[in-house]
């Protein structure tokens, strides 16, 4: 695999040469990304130095604060409280979301029963009931897990459902014309067809789970990364507050980007036959 890493890199292969028309376009995408990061953080630094507000520290200070939080062990301890409920919640979501979605795609009855509530869960501002959940289940693990599940389950379910439900008609017809059984249709056609959508749904679910865990922790005193954010805001140490916010966004981004790379690699490998 290592020899192929370069050509598998989605960012490296996505842009063919732009030709003479657009000289700057010849820069490889990774350079553009670095430029983009530099520009953003540079503007942040500048805005913090002016300063546009006392509550807006320069990027440099935030980086220093981030290292401070890491070396004091504070940040790691906080993630020790934030990540377990996130992982538990996401595991529950993966099992039930995919299960519900596949069931809905295969059976009219489960579709009838589950589709409307899932649409509501997806569209409605479910965050409204999270205060109640923290109120009901206290500051423990349970409330956080429920918050994660509520905000991640609908996406996973509906994506899995769509993947199954919208399997290409002609592939299903093809299976029937060769006298395949319903079971073969499901196992050999529908599930492989839906796998891409299911994977994408899981990514969306993880994104929702991050939103849920942070929300739960902001509304419950005093645990995890949400507590760090709230605490440093209350004592007006804004560099530390931004460092904590930066860390959770960076973590979510890394996880989601990593998954995307894995996903592309799997499908690219499938497309090249190297997995079989």
């Amino acid at each position: 695999m290592s020899a192929e890493t370069l050509s598998h890199d989605p960012s490296a292969s996505s842009e063919p040469g732009m030709g003479l028309k657009d000289r700057v376009g010849d820069l490889p995408p990774i350079v553009w990304k670095l430029l983009s990061f530099a520009l953003f953080f540079g503007l942040w630094e500048l805005a913090g130095r002016i300063p546009i507000s006392l509550a807006f520290p320069p990027f440099g200070d935030v980086v220093v604060a981030l290292f401070g939080l890491i070396s004091s062990g504070e940040l790691i301890a906080a993630y020790g409280r934030t990540l377990p409920p996130l992982l538990i919640g996401l595991s529950i979501t993966s099992v039930f979301g995919v299960g519900f979605g596949v069931a809905m795609g295969l059976s009219r009855t489960s579709e009838w029963a589950l589709f409307p509530p899932m649409i509501i869960l997806q569209t409605a501002p479910m965050a409204a009931i999270i205060p109640l959940i923290t109120y009901a289940y206290g500051i423990g693990l349970t409330a956080k897990v429920i918050a994660v599940v509520i905000l991640s389950l609908p996406m996973v379910t509906l994506n899995s459902y769509n993947g199954i439900r919208y399997t290409s008609d002609s592939l299903l017809e093809m299976t029937r014309s060769f006298m395949g059984t319903r079971r073969q249709q499901v196992v050999k056609i529908m599930l492989p067809h839906a796998s891409g959508m299911i994977f994408a749904g899981l990514r969306l679910g993880i994104s929702g789970g991050f939103i849920g865990i942070v929300l739960a922790e902001l509304l419950i005193t005093p645990t995890g990364i949400g507590d760090i954010i709230s605490y440093y805001r209350s004592v007006a140490r804004y560099a530390e507050m931004f460092a904590a916010i930066f860390s959770i966004i960076a973590l979510a981004t890394l996880v989601l980007t990593g998954l995307q790379v894995v996903e592309r690699r799997i499908f690219k490998a499938l497309g090249q036959g190297s997995l079989r």
Partner: peptide, 15 residues
């Protein structure tokens, strides 16, 4: 688009 923007809200409050 997929970041936990809930974390940003506390930073908006002092700003």
């Amino acid at each position: 688009i997929s970041a936990p923007l809930t974390a940003v809200v506390p930073a908006l409050m002092p700003l």
